[in-house]
């Protein structure tokens, strides 16, 4: 009898989790995808010096430049968009002068290539991202904030993610338990988890989940 009770619990929890992940896995995944703001590398007019026998003259030259925020320790994250989604790739760059918030790119990326100028999470090569059209408060905090602000924000994000996943799981388990109480007959056990998950899905839908 104890074995069957254990089997009951394992089956309920397992099937509930599998159903929750099946229906909400993508939503949970989206929670962890970094949201980024991208800017294209542009041809800009930069101040330059021309050395002649008469002396050094100040002039202008057109160079490929990216916003200062995109450069980090000699590399940028380039944005690659396709039908499958948006991904970032790690690109090493050689930089030149800085002018008015833009950095000259001597080598590494071409003009019109989009680079990441702000992200609300840590990026790495090949990571999927969601591209936002404008800077949000979260991205501004993460990109421009101080080390303490960034740390506090990262903690807040993680807490929020864990809370969301836990709430989803809690509803799922509650749904499964309710179904188990409603359907006591052994033969009906097989049908209980989907019902349980239906309850949990309904609860999640009405719980204001983002």
């Amino acid at each position: 009898m104890k074995t069957k009770k254990a089997a009951d619990i394992i089956l309920y929890v397992f099937l509930t989790f599998m159903l929750v992940f099946t229906f909400f896995g993508k939503d949970l995944y989206r929670l962890t995808i970094p949201k980024v703001v991208a800017e294209s590398a542009k041809r800009k007019s930069f101040p330059a010096e021309v050395e002649t026998p008469e002396g050094i003259f100040q002039t202008k030259k057109v160079v490929i430049a990216v916003p200062e925020e995109a450069i980090s320790d000699g590399f940028v994250y380039a944005l690659n968009e396709s039908e499958q989604g948006a991904y970032v790739t790690y690109e090493e760059v050689e930089t030149g002068k800085t002018d008015d918030g833009w950095v000259e790119i001597l080598k590494g990326i071409g003009a019109r290539k989009k680079v990441i100028v702000g992200s609300d999470r840590v990026l790495y090569d090949g990571r999927e991202v969601i591209v936002l059209t404008e800077q949000t408060e979260q991205i501004r905090l993460y990109t421009e904030g101080t080390a303490e602000e960034k740390e506090a924000f990262a903690k807040k994000c993680k807490k929020h993610n864990i809370q969301t996943v836990l709430i989803a799981m809690l509803f799922a388990v509650a749904g499964a338990v309710t179904a188990r109480l409603l359907l006591r007959k052994r033969l009906r056990i097989l049908f209980a988890p989907p019902d349980g998950s239906a309850v949990s899905i309904a609860l999640l839908l009405f719980s204001g989940r983002d």
């Binding site: 599998m18 992940f21 099946t22 896995g25 993508k26 949970l28 995944y29 962890t32």
Partner: peptide, 13 residues
């Protein structure tokens, strides 16, 4: 397996 690569869940079902 369960969150990032949802294909495995459909394979399970």
């Amino acid at each position: 397996l369960l969150v990032e690569d949802s294909q495995v869940l459909w394979n399970f079902w």
